[in-house]
Amino acid sequence: MNALPLPSVLPPTAPDVAAVRAGNPDALAAVYHQHAAAMLTLALRLTASRADAEDVVHDVFVALPEALAHYEERGQFRAWLMRLTTRVALMHERRTARLERRDSLDGVATVGDVERDVLVADHVYGALRTLKPALRHVFVLRVLHELPHAEIARVLGISISASEVRLHRGIQQLRQLLRRLA
C-alpha cells in the first residue's frame, strides 16, 4: 500500500537579519511587508491616532538596522519587533503628550468581532481614546495583545501590581463609557 506524500508546509520565511542590519533595502522591504500591518495596529491602539501610529511605524523602520544591533536572535523576531514598536509608541506618546490633537480612526481595520461591526468599532475606539494613556497602554497590551502583566510591567517601567491596577481601572472606565454610548 502506497501512502500519499504529505504536502510540504513551510513556515513563514524568517527575515534576513544580517541583511537588514547591513541596510539592504530589499531585506528591509521584506520585513516591512511581513510585519507593518500588525505594527500599525499595535501602534494605533497605543497612540489612539492614525497619524501618530504611522509615525511610530516609520520611526521603527528608519531605526531598524541600528536597533537590530541589540537583537540577540532568541525567541521570535515578530515578538521582538512588537516590543520595539511598543517602546517607540510610548516614547512618541511622551513627546506628543502636550498635544491634544487626535485624528479620526475611520477606516482602520480592527481585530476579532469588532471587525464585523463598524459602529461597535467606532464606540470602542472612541472609548479607548478617552482613557488616560497609562490605562490605555496597559489595556491594549494585556487585552488586545495578550501580554502577561510581567512583560507589560517591564516594557512600561512599572510594577506588576501597577499594571494589574491600571488594567482594572481601564476596564471599569471603558465599561462606563460604553454603557453611556449604547
Rank of each mutant, 00 (worst) to 15 (best):
Q173D: 07
D117S: 14
P148R: 03
T130W: 13
G112C: 14
L105Y: 01
E164Y: 03
I152T: 00
R116T: 13
R142N: 11
V155Q: 06
L167C: 00
K132R: 14
L174D: 07
Q173A: 13
R169M: 00
Q172M: 04
A150S: 07
Q176E: 15
V124P: 03
H137C: 11
H149D: 10
D117K: 04
Q172D: 14
A121N: 02
E151I: 06
D117Q: 15
Q176V: 09
H149A: 15
E146R: 13
P133S: 14
L156G: 01
L156E: 13
V108K: 01
S161H: 09
S159L: 06
S161Q: 07
E164P: 00
L167D: 06
L131M: 10
R136T: 01
V118K: 09
D106R: 05
V120I: 08
A127N: 03
L144M: 08
A121V: 07
I152Y: 04
V108H: 06
T110V: 10
R136M: 06
D103L: 12
F139I: 12
R116V: 06
S163V: 14
E146V: 15
I171N: 04
Y125S: 07
H123V: 00
L119T: 10
L144S: 09
G157D: 12
G126Y: 09
V111L: 14
E146S: 15
V114C: 10
L119N: 10
T110W: 07
H123Y: 10
R166N: 11
L119C: 09
G170D: 10
E164N: 10
D122Y: 03
T110N: 02
I171R: 06
H168T: 08
V155N: 01
H145L: 15
L174I: 05
L144N: 01
R129G: 00
R129E: 07
T130E: 12
Q176S: 15
V155D: 03
L156V: 05
L128F: 02
A162P: 04
A134R: 08
G126N: 05
H149L: 12
V120S: 12
P148Q: 06
V120G: 04
P133E: 08
V138S: 02
H149W: 07
K132D: 14
I171G: 02
A134G: 01
